[in-house]
């Protein structure tokens, strides 16, 4: 099951440049939350602060508190420990190109020392089913490489790979930006189903996508969280003029 995420006074920096300013947010468990905002507003930086990917960039640092369920992300938790509980899907699908479909999904488990073949088979099937890919690949699990799949299938493979380690939170950074409408529709359907079991945070430039898949939406601008509310509210009657200007296309 998903867990809630609490973010308190988060500031993020690239060297001397501050990218996020005092972000405070609560993500509800088992809900999808969309983060929107113009390019460079800090939404991707923010999502990368949730699983400590921000600090992988030289000179980048984070201040503040992030709690994922009972886990304090920046206080005594290792990155490996954290990423078992927080899966991530990126803008560009990134399957391991030389690995088979099966091995792509099983990679995380194997890395964690999981060797029981029968159980691995079960997890791979369950994860591919959850990612709505099983029916399309079940006959070629070992024959085909992850890279041989279409863009939409590759992205669902990456989702299956993230789900295989049974995370509680799924972070998605523009997961459909490189996909056609059919593949996008499949991923959106998937998000809708997955939020029953996972807490989902999705960064998207597609505002209609945010409106379709997320119960909550946060609007970022110049590194600040301008508005966070129920998605219907943000797209029907936002509280802040800047949010209204953005969702109506007056800037951004």
């Amino acid at each position: 099951m998903g867990v809630g995420i609490t973010v308190e006074h988060v500031n993020a920096f690239y060297g001397k440049t501050q990218a996020l300013f005092d972000i405070n947010l609560v993500f509800e468990a088992n809900h999808a939350t969309a983060l929107i905002g113009p390019s460079g507003c800090g939404k991707s930086t923010f999502i990368r602060c949730l699983n400590r990917m921000h600090e992988t960039i030289p000179e980048a640092r984070v201040e503040g508190t992030v709690r994922i369920g009972d886990l304090s992300v920046y206080n005594g938790t290792s990155a490996t420990q954290l990423r078992r509980r927080v899966g991530m899907v990126f803008q560009k699908a990134n399957p391991f190109p030389t690995m088979s479909i099966y091995d792509n999904v099983a990679a995380g488990l194997k890395l964690n020392g999981f060797r029981n073949r029968k159980q691995l088979d079960e997890v791979v099937e369950r994860s591919l089913n959850s990612a709505a890919l099983w029916e399309e690949v079940k006959d070629n699990l070992h024959k085909k490489s992850g890279a041989s799949l279409s863009g939409g299938q590759q992205q669902r493979l990456c989702i299956a790979r993230a789900l295989a380690v049974q995370p509680e939170v799924l972070l998605m950074d523009e997961p459909c930006s490189a996909l056609d409408p059919i593949s996008t529709g499949k991923i959106e359907d998937l998000i809708f189903q997955l939020k029953e079991q996972y807490t989902i945070v999705i960064v998207t430039h597609n505002m209609q996508q945010a409106a379709r898949v997320a119960e909550f939406t946060g609007f970022f601008l110049l590194g600040k969280m301008i508005e966070f509310d129920k998605t219907e509210k943000v797209f029907r009657k936002p509280s802040d003029k800047r949010t209204e200007d953005y969702v109506t296309g007056r800037f951004g």
């Binding site: 505002m207 209609q208 409106a211 943000v234 797209f235 029907r236 009657k237 936002p238 949010t243 209204e244 969702v247 109506t248």
Partner: peptide, 8 residues
């Protein structure tokens, strides 16, 4: 796909 004040 108008939103907010435009949709209203």
């Amino acid at each position: 796909q108008p939103a907010a004040v435009d949709l209203r």
